[in-house]
Amino acid sequence: MIKTEHLYKRYEKVEAVKDLNISVEPGEIYGFLGPNGAGKTTTIMMILGILKPTSGKILIFNKDLYSDYFGIKRRIGVVSEVQYLYEDMTAYEYLSFFCDLYGVKNKDRKIEELLHRVNLYDRKDDLLGHYSRGMQQKIGFVRALLNDPELLILDEPVSGLDPTGIREIRDLILEENRQGRTVFMSSHILSEVERISHRVGILNKGRLVAEDNMENLRKKLTSEVEIELEIDNFDAEAEKRLETLPFVNSLTKEDGKYLVRVKADKDYRGDLVSFVSSIGGNLKEIRRREMSLEDAFITITEKNISLFSSEEVTE
């Protein structure tokens, strides 16, 4: 459905997207995960032809976008984080306009059906400027579904919504996917992607650092455990030595306690106890904390780790 090959986007001095190779398969929900500013929206804008790639290739439905610009665009539905609606139009007028734009037949029936699905049919004659954020988001979804798209591209679709709104939108995405639509969804919220995506690509600082199904990704991401230590008589020299231990990935200090991230291949608590006593430290407490997927995601994005190799990505 979507395939990018060695995609680059450079803005003067900043490389927004670097050598991006992703492939979205028909029928799947592809979660495009990354922190804010990772280059997700830039990638989506390039896929839609709104931004021009510096280099690389994008194929949609196995075709270059410009080989059949209008034909391809008519097969895509897009929802962005903010809807940017024409606020001087009613919901019906707005959707009717997009039906005309996409050449939708039986537009009244289509609009009615979709508005019923999002429970907005009764408000169809209200000006969009009077809609709440959640309602506007739903209208954005309806707009994206008017043309029965084969591919739905969603850019942060639940960002800023309340829990009910998030659930409604999530259900809508799953429903559409069940009907056979391919979904390409970007988000910076891992839990959202985790819940519904079949496959996930993690983008960090413009580079794809991981791409796999959720199960494998979970395994890869949770390959660390966090051990909380409370030690007396532990000076800076000792901290330095602790950090350089071969099984320690990182060390941070929080409220007088040490948080040590170690590899998950075995239980290193015994090794840590031995180390502390060997340097004359007084260990008051030691506790193992399981690392959540969210923590793992933050770690790899903050430290810019690529899961494609064990090495840290150097800029």
């Binding site: 709104i50 665009k73 008519r74 897009v78 962005s80 996409y102």
Partner: peptide
């Protein structure tokens, strides 16, 4: 931002 939305479509 409405121009951007137009360009999502055909």
């Amino acid at each position: 931002g409405t121009l951007e939305v137009l360009f999502y479509g055909p």
